[in-house]
Simulated scan of single mutants.
Amino acid sequence: MKKLAILIAFIFILTVTSACGNTTPEQSNTSQALQSNKEQPQGQENKENDSLNIPPDNEKTTTTSHNSQQEAKPGNVETQPDHAALDIPTSDSLIRSPEGKNLSQVEWKPGAPDVTLPIRFGTTEAELVLGLDHPNGTKAVMIFPFTSVGWQLDLYGMDTEVFDEYGELQEGYKIQAALHDFDQDGISELIVTAGNSIIDLSIWVYSFTTVGDLQKINPIKQELSITGQSYIVLDGDEIIAPYGSQGLFDYYKYVDKVFMQPVY
């Protein structure tokens, strides 16, 4: 009996020792994972946390695309397409800025092919064509491509010496044109000038009015018809035209769609 008791006690001790020494695989893995996180360098942990706050690439792309659409969206006021000034010497320019830079955007001289200046009056597209008329005279026609209609500009309604008896430009003369928004309403006015850059200059200014039928009603109205000496200056809502040989100037201010001569 004594031997049997000793054997039972030995078996019990062996069983308890074996149970205390074994660890389940789940417990071992969990301990290793917790220890690995605890020993991770601080910098690396912040880097991983920060990456959680970075928006996905598709969100960034969507935001950029939305901003681009907003920038490209046109406003309520139509803007005139940019037209580079003619590459001509300033001394040959009939239309200049207050700083003396050339503003003419198109030029035609007798003997040259027709020239065209694209224009957009608000939402209405047009073209100014300058050239030699047939069978004689000077062509200055406003064409509206989408209606196949053209209206001749009136260049002969004042006492001017830039044309001969046939309505053609005098020898050594040229005709130039430019767009300028005098009243800043988003629709440019058209300035046409003809002269020899020395002592003889004629100036016409035209505005555009929206009409119901371009084929029946001329939308182009002559707002100003004056003479000068060598060139004109466009300064905001004013036209400055030199005359005489003493450095004198005439001023014309565009007020409420009408050119007036202010007293300075």
Rank of each mutant, 00 (worst) to 15 (best):
L14A: 15
T63N: 08
S93T: 00
S225D: 11
P110W: 07
M260W: 03
F121V: 05
P81F: 04
A140I: 04
G122S: 11
P55E: 15
E107T: 09
Q69L: 10
P81Q: 06
P74A: 08
D114K: 10
G186D: 14
H83S: 07
T61E: 15
N29G: 06
S28Y: 15
N49V: 10
Q215F: 06
E125C: 00
D57P: 08
D183A: 07
I198A: 12
I203Q: 00
I143T: 14
G43T: 14
E125P: 01
N46A: 09
N37C: 08
D256M: 03
A241M: 00
H134G: 06
Q32G: 08
V192I: 11
N53E: 13
Q69H: 05
Q170K: 12
P25N: 12
E171W: 09
D154L: 02
R96V: 01
S207D: 14
V77P: 03
Y156M: 09
K47M: 08
P110T: 10
W204N: 09
I217C: 02
K139M: 03
I13A: 01
G111C: 04
E26F: 12
L103C: 01
E39L: 12
E48P: 04
Q261N: 14
E59A: 09
I8T: 02
Q215N: 14
I54R: 06
K3E: 15
I220M: 09
M158N: 03
I226K: 10
I191W: 05
D114S: 14
S68A: 15
A9N: 04
L86A: 02
D133R: 08
V211R: 05
G244K: 04
E189I: 09
V129G: 02
E168F: 01
Q105G: 12
V162T: 10
K253V: 08
R120F: 00
Y206S: 01
Q170Y: 04
N67S: 12
F249R: 13
E39N: 10
E107P: 00
D82T: 03
A84D: 15
V211H: 05
T210P: 10
L4M: 06
Y251C: 04
W151L: 04
